[in-house]
């Protein structure tokens, strides 16, 4: 390393990994209750992680949550962008994940056909 610029570039590269500990960005929440897991939440979770990694998204954290009582709509995935309503998507299949990520997470456009509810921020 020879210049301050090199250091700053290195920091940017390294930051993505440490970001998770200071996260206040976009949250993707997968319902991982027994119902969710039975409906395939594990596969959806893996698909989410793959998609986030593939796009090298920064400022995104992936959470899990328990059963919220809409078991028949599982797998449930929530996407919350800072300052925007938290949107719940139902009956999500791994194949839907790329669309959810590209439309909602990256571009902020809600994927209406999968929405089951919204919670105001």
């Amino acid at each position: 390393m020879k210049t301050l610029e090199d250091l700053k570039k290195l920091r940017e590269k390294l930051q993505a990994d440490a970001q998770i500990r200071h996260a206040d960005g976009i949250r993707i929440i997968v319902g991982m209750g027994t119902c969710g897991i039975a409906a395939g939440a594990r596969e959806v979770m893996t698909a989410v992680l793959d998609e986030v990694a593939k796009r090298e998204l920064k400022n995104v954290t992936v959470h899990q949550t328990g059963c919220i009582g809409m078991c028949e709509k599982e797998v449930l995935v929530d996407i919350a962008r800072p300052g925007e309503p938290r949107v719940t998507y139902g009956k999500v299949k791994p194949a839907d994940v790329p669309k959810l990520v590209s439309e909602h997470v990256v571009n902020g456009r809600v994927v209406e056909e999968l929405v089951v509810g919204k919670i105001e921020a």
Binding site: D17, I20, R21, M45, V52, A53, L57, V62, H63
Partner: peptide, 8 residues
């Protein structure tokens, strides 16, 4: 590269 979703 896998996205690490949680740090312990």
């Amino acid at each position: 590269m896998q996205h690490t979703r949680a740090h312990v």
